[in-house]
């Protein structure tokens, strides 16, 4: 009854999936779990925001008066457009148009750069005002209890988000190169879908940050 121990089947690494479909399934599920994890990361920050907004309602209400609503809104459009471009890139690959997909991805990447550029302009303005986090806060025009906390949260939340944008841009550039070099096909473009999911996550987080920091 003992199996022939001498002949282990030679199966290449990662060849343990039955077929490409189940491999894609696993990759998508893994990405969704990763996204859930990322959401919890931001949840901690949103909780902190809610906590201090409850403790200092006035400061958090007036905080938006010192924000560049125009730039924030512009950034929202930039990021949403960028997300749309990624979605279009995926459908382009599905239609077998790799070059178009690569171009769209490069466009999305460029919009990411624009986003960071605008964000940087805002940061510079705040730094110039002295609206820096915590110990460095020195903003004469907005000094009331909780004001420094508002700006601290602003810096931390947008800062963590900006790091995600940076990572996302790294992902997009890799994907763009792979798309342009014909790596993807109608049958196989899982990395592109996963990268797209990540970029949408970055976008959606901003869609929560924008009202909380600029509008509310």
């Amino acid at each position: 009854m003992r199996p022939e121990a001498s002949l282990p089947p030679v199966v290449p690494q990662a060849g343990h999936f039955g077929d490409e479909a189940s491999r894609q399934d696993a990759a998508h599920l893994g990405m969704w779990i990763f996204i859930a994890s990322e959401v919890m990361l931001f949840t901690a920050l949103f909780t902190a925001y809610a906590f201090y907004r409850y403790a200092y309602p006035d400061a958090f209400h007036q905080g938006r008066l010192h924000m560049e609503v125009g730039l924030g809104t512009l950034n929202t459009y930039v990021l949403v457009t960028s997300s749309i471009l990624v979605a279009l890139a995926i459908s382009a690959v599905r239609a077998g148009r790799d070059l178009r997909a690569g171009g769209l991805l490069l466009g999305a990447l460029a919009l990411g750069v624009v986003f960071l550029f605008i964000k940087g302009a805002e940061y510079t303005q705040h730094a110039h005002d002295g609206a820096l986090p915590g110990a460095w806060y020195d903003f004469e025009a907005f000094s009331m209890p909780g004001a420094s906390l508002f700006f601290t949260l602003y810096w931390v939340m947008t800062g963590v988000h900006a790091v995600h944008v940076l990572v996302g841009m790294g992902v997009l550039s890799t994907l763009a190169v792979r798309a342009l070099s014909g790596h993807f096909s109608v049958a196989y473009h899982t990395p592109l879908e996963l990268g797209g999911m990540y970029w949408h996550l970055v976008d959606i987080v901003w869609l929560f940050l924008w009202p909380l920091l600029y509008l509310a």
Partner: peptide, 14 residues
């Protein structure tokens, strides 16, 4: 590192 003060009562944190 930078004293953000989110948990520091001296800066209004909790």
């Amino acid at each position: 590192v930078v004293g953000v003060g989110l948990f520091d009562p001296a800066r209004g944190g909790d």
